[in-house]
Design a protein around this nucleic acid. Sequence first.
DNA 1: CAAAGTCCTGAATCATATG
DNA 2: ACATATGATTCAGGACTTT
Lengths: 278, 278
Amino acid sequence: MGLVINDKEWAGKYKLKDIQNKIILGDTIEVMKKMKPKSVDMVFIDPPYFLQLPKKRLIRWEVKTDVEGVNEQWDKFASFKEYDNFIKKLLKGVKRVMKPNATIWVIGTYHNIFRTGKIMYDLGFWMLNDVSWFKTNPMPNWLNVRFTNATETLLWAVKDKKVKKYVYNKEVAREYSMKDFNSKIVFNVWRLPICMGGQRLKNADGKKLHSTQKPEALLERIIRISTNPDDVVFDPVAGTGTTGYVAKKLGRNFIMIDKEEKYVKAMQKRLKGLQTKL
Amino acid sequence: MGLVINDKEWAGKYKLKDIQNKIILGDTIEVMKKMKPKSVDMVFIDPPYFLQLPKKRLIRWEVKTDVEGVNEQWDKFASFKEYDNFIKKLLKGVKRVMKPNATIWVIGTYHNIFRTGKIMYDLGFWMLNDVSWFKTNPMPNWLNVRFTNATETLLWAVKDKKVKKYVYNKEVAREYSMKDFNSKIVFNVWRLPICMGGQRLKNADGKKLHSTQKPEALLERIIRISTNPDDVVFDPVAGTGTTGYVAKKLGRNFIMIDKEEKYVKAMQKRLKGLQTKL
DNA sequence: CAAAGTCCTGAATCATATG
DNA sequence: ACATATGATTCAGGACTTT
């Protein structure tokens, strides 16, 4: 049995053992319906950001160049409504497969995080924190017509208000806060650089494979703080697979879904590389 | 003509000269309807945050005093829906009186800022930045079960997507960024302390008058960066009146509205104190 | 008077056990 | 699902008191 499951070739339900530490190629909403309820310990979601950029010419303060911008099929939504509907379906599906004491992380920018947060509240998630990822090396806004957007926002929530015994490794959290600000207070502000250098996956042309690949250090922090070893970390829109890669590296298990073959292939390669390393 | 206008005693519309540098006592939605469209240069809103705090009291065990949360009438909403409706009416009213190139600032915490931001997008405001106010002296999370909430979020937007020539004093912005982070990049992260000491308005008992008084330094930054001298700064839910106080101090004009007489009285006193100072 | 020590408090969705 | 009783944590900064 390989690392990848093609959902089209799978009839019936998924048992946990079928998909643990697997990448599933398929429509995430449909795949989740076939998963067992209350089966994962933590969820990380990095949804499409709905940048609303013009199709041809991307504005330079948003992205580096026209070619490399977020202008791909997966970020195309006709309207706020369509976007909201997608996020709502995604979060509903995720909530169903979360264990009762599981937590969920969602990352976004000001383009999408407000609508997304609002939907989380409406679905009954209980917010624990909004965390501000303060990038140490943001792209400067060289037109100087507004502030340099140096942050992304992470929302951290539990399934319901009544959940109390979720995982929060406070000593680990304090480690990072000491490193960031030399402070014993564990702030909801994190300082770390964006994804750079060797971490960045490239395609055959040497161009970056994915516009919004997250740094491993970000996932490391999230996973170490909010899961224990052997927990199952779930990413329903996995992209380049940083979630599963870091989870595995830290002795956790993963389940990842993506609908694009090129990303699934890249994840597969990345994880195989990890196996040889370990 | 005094500093305060009682809306009940005012028939007909308000001309700009009637209300410039005045505090209006009345229902903000109704008052705004009587204001002239396209008349203000900048708006600052610090709406109720809809904290949904538990009814029980928290006690500090060592000193045996209550932890006073916000538990006041103005933060009472029955449901998300009721809260959303209030914010929607407020923002619609505000948009109407904004000049075409005016900008708007809205502040909040994770309790309310996501729904509020979503509504702003839906009403057609064009977001310029989300700014993270990183408090230098937050209340620590004493039980250590989540991150210390050390931030509030400011949303900064223009009236419509097509607005280009709004006020952004980039040199002033850089001043603050140098002070905060010794950086020439003007980050969307601001470091300043919460409202403390002599700034804080007290009532006759020596207790704080308002749970959520904003520091003058915050308003100073906002006003200096996003307005020019003699501009009209509008605050439709003025509370303790920090907006007007700082605006006046910086050579701007203000219009403030609040429905509670005790706050209007306090603002009046505060502004009279400023006149004697200047 | 200055320096050191004490007390208080800040927009907070902070826990657990029992009935 | 409530309400109630019990328990024993955190830091910066301003106001106040003592040395």
